[in-house]
Design a protein around this nucleic acid. Structure first.
Lengths: 140, 140
DNA sequence: AAGATAGTGGGGTAGAGTGGGGAGTAGTGG
DNA sequence: CCACTACTCCCCACTCTACCCCACTATCTT
């Protein structure tokens, strides 16, 4: 299970060191794709298939489904880690998630999320207030 | 069953000694998460899975669900105890619960709650007056 | 009163995070 | 077809953090 929040930095070569804690959970193959809400998702290669299947199963006769499929699949890249546990993030993905140098990597159960740090802060702050309301609704 | 209230202090390295009474109840694996009402929760690893499952089951195609999952899982950390029964609390969690040096650890049946001591006092005081009223409302 | 155990503090070391250099390969132009 | 360039991948080196171990004090128990 991928948990926790880590601050890292991209170097000049667009390399990102994955937090050591996450490496074993990811195996040695990672798929990075455009995520939701302006971040990138990183899946262990074996878990990627499940998510991919969910998106693939959407009906391509619906325009919105096609948009989702393009969003996910055209942005997906298989990345391998070097001996130091780093992966190169394609410039196109970095741009689409508006990621600069300062990055936050968050574990969200079955995948990682890669955020521009400033954006992450804002997003998380936005949730804080409503988390307890949502929890209240989940309670029964 | 986890019961009772203990005053402890964080050291300079953000380590918290768990009260000896609680250690056997927690096994050797603990998961710490952002809790409700401005404290931290600490679960025995095996009890954590139930809570995690409820959050995981939310549909990630809904924005609210995604935000909830991020908040919970990115705020959760697996912490192991050292030989003295201490665990390191990540700075990001301490910050989000506004915990300084003086800490109160409270047992609440299946989990521990970690509070900034001053905040705990205030909260407890708040409850004191209203416990009977709340009980009345929860009754059916 | 003495010993044991819980709580607190500090130091050393392995490993994680970051940066830079060099070789190999693909792509482009002459 | 060859040569040059640019990019990518791999390896080496340094710094700093976090983890692990040891030591001390206070309190509770016998």
């Amino acid at each position: 299970m991928l948990l926790g929040e880590h601050d890292h930095t991209l170097d000049d070569k667009n390399r990102l060191t994955l937090p050591a804690k996450f490496r074993e959970g990811l195996g040695d193959g990672v798929v990075v794709t455009r995520g939701m809400d302006g971040c990138l998702y990183a899946y262990a290669a074996e878990h990627w298939h499940g998510t991919a299947e969910r998106i693939r199963a959407l009906d391509p006769l619906s325009r919105e489904s096609r948009m989702m499929q393009r969003h996910f699949f055209s942005g997906a890249v298989r990345a391998d880690l070097d001996k130091q546990g780093r992966m190169v993030l394609p410039a196109s993905l970095l741009e689409s998630a508006d990621i600069r140098r300062e990055v936050t990597v968050a574990g969200v159960y079955d995948h990682l999320e890669i955020w521009d740090r400033a954006k992450w802060r804002v997003h998380l702050h936005e949730v804080e207030g409503s988390a307890e309301d949502v929890a209240e609704r989940l309670a029964n």
